[in-house]
Design a protein around this nucleic acid. Sequence first.
DNA 1: TGTCGAATTGCAGAAGTCTTCAATTCCGGG
DNA 2: CCCGGAATTGAAGACTTCTGCAATTCGACA
Lengths: 128, 128
Amino acid sequence: MSVPLYQAKAEMFRTLGHPVRIRVLELLQSGPRPVRDLLAEIDVEPSNLSQQLAVLRRTGVVVSFRDAGLVMYALSTPDVADLLAAGRRILGAVLTDRDGLLAELRAHSPSEQPARPAASIEGSTAAR
Amino acid sequence: MSVPLYQAKAEMFRTLGHPVRIRVLELLQSGPRPVRDLLAEIDVEPSNLSQQLAVLRRTGVVVSFRDAGLVMYALSTPDVADLLAAGRRILGAVLTDRDGLLAELRAHSPSEQPARPAASIEGSTAAR
DNA sequence: TGTCGAATTGCAGAAGTCTTCAATTCCGGG
DNA sequence: CCCGGAATTGAAGACTTCTGCAATTCGACA
């Protein structure tokens, strides 16, 4: 597997790494929409939205076209929906897992350091 | 849907937005591995790898533990593999789609602007 | 042709991420 | 107890991304 391939994959994921861009993609899951609609639902400045849309276009996850005088955006492939779904599942797994262990910990050891950052409770920090 | 949720999702994807981190996750798909092995396969400085592993740990997509004197890393949930697979599919779709249209364009209009950047050939740039 | 709303672009300062270096922690074995 | 390799941490400098403002382009329609 070539090295630049990892670069390309990383770029693809980095493209989704922004709240506004995620939001746009979720809205586009239900079909093409004009910029105007996105703007109405997202609460961000027009220029900012445009910048984020440009990022999504550059990577090719969305496409744009003009219809009835408005610029429309659409997912370039339905596979994008799968990606979002997978992301949701992982988020769910990670969170319940964290909260689960957190709750368990609390139940078994009543007088533990209370100000300890939650993140280090999981198995995630073995080496130190 | 709460606003910080989009923040969390974005963070999750941003976590994957780095070649070394992608590489690590792909290696971990086949099971837990010691840092030493990752280091041998990835060609990056130890401290850099550690930094990237820390990022993955922070988000909770990997966990670490010590075994036989070595620090091991593992995917925190097999769902991560789905995410990588979905990413691969999209990358494939986007690329063939781009190259496909590119080839089609070439075939149908022999004397077209040759120095035009490839990215703008797709439907991706309708408004201008 | 002139005007209006829609959407994009250019840009600058603020904020965040990457990489590398040196220093540190951790643990197993002598 | 101290050494050695394994892995992590801290911090600084280079680099990239984000945000908001002002200016511009674009196309529809009178």
